[in-house]
Design a protein around this nucleic acid. Sequence first.
DNA 1: GTCTATAAAGGGATAGAC
DNA 2: GTCTATCCCTTTATAGAC
Lengths: 223, 223
Amino acid sequence: MQIVPKNPDMARARQQRSAQAEQRILAAAERVFAESGFGGATMAALAAAAGLPAANLHYHFGTKKRLYEALLENILHLWLEASDSITADASPAAALSAYIAAKMRYSRTRPYASKVFANEVLQGGVHLHSFLGLELRRRVDEKAEILEGWMRKGLMERVDPRHLFFLLWAMTQTYADFETQIRAVLGRAAVLAPEDYAVGEALIKRLVLRGCGLSFSETEINP
Amino acid sequence: MQIVPKNPDMARARQQRSAQAEQRILAAAERVFAESGFGGATMAALAAAAGLPAANLHYHFGTKKRLYEALLENILHLWLEASDSITADASPAAALSAYIAAKMRYSRTRPYASKVFANEVLQGGVHLHSFLGLELRRRVDEKAEILEGWMRKGLMERVDPRHLFFLLWAMTQTYADFETQIRAVLGRAAVLAPEDYAVGEALIKRLVLRGCGLSFSETEINP
DNA sequence: GTCTATAAAGGGATAGAC
DNA sequence: GTCTATCCCTTTATAGAC
């Protein structure tokens, strides 16, 4: 990362090992920050989770804060991808269903990422000001405009598109962020069962599609 | 709290001052823990928010952990109250509407309490094991049984009652827990406007009531 | 019960050998 | 790039005067 090497081969090898170590650290950090929050996570815990001495983390990321910010940066990209299905020429029912499915897949496969993001927003999102105020806002404005287009064409009933997104995020992300609570209520010992996610996803689709005046049939959604 | 007084009057006065101080500390702690998480909150910050020396907090609550647990205990009571409207002889539409309204009122009036609870669940709920696994689970089982009764009588369509609760919690609490994100998207500078909560509440009612096959009319819900 | 001062421990970060 | 040893500041908690 900050070494001037003698020959190209050594340089490449070094960079590769460095990149590997950084990925390893970020993956471990996702879990540790999710479980302890920024303030509760210690460099010792982060290092132990990554299987490295704490000094290595400082070498690669400088400070705990910068490691955390690098992790957040990674997570934000994931967050934005899910809405790709919402395009002007898609059908509202299919687009919203696909969006819900994508967000649920994210909750199921990347629960720690979801929790880190939730933790950050919960605590005021000080590290996210430009993301929330610029990138996210722009993206939501774009998608809201598409929904308003559908409404003008009579393809769906009138709803406030931004609030609809707030509720979509809340419902899908709760299966990651509040998984502990859901497991407790359902009596699942270690992890949620695949069918728990399926039941939740079907119910979210039902509420949303019907709420927007779109037909909802189990078989259409889960063929 | 641990003083043996000479006469009853002095004892009462002391107890009152002590109780006042403890309320003051708990109110400040709700805000500080919400904004920084358990690990990020320091006794110095908690003391400053309460307007007292840090030693006083230790006098009243012993350790930071015990102060946090006392605060959580307070918050859990709030959490359970909201579902009082759900009784076997209520009408499903009215009961669910009242529940949504109660949870939204809680998000609006006690956002810090909601955030502390969210933070705790997010981080695995280690301080909530008995609450989640016993009290909450029992309560949800009870309320789920009431919903199933309504379904058997044909008063509402069949849905998984537990997952319905997960979504109700998620949708209503998001207006407290993710308020930062909602404000950013809506372009609200300091706080959400009263109408933001109203729009959210109406949309939640619409999704839920329609999703359960119950009639939803704006005027019926917001007279 | 409340305060000031301080002990004791824990945590982030760096130095320097390899 | 990675490791061990360590510095130094922050934080929790207590002691003891008032």
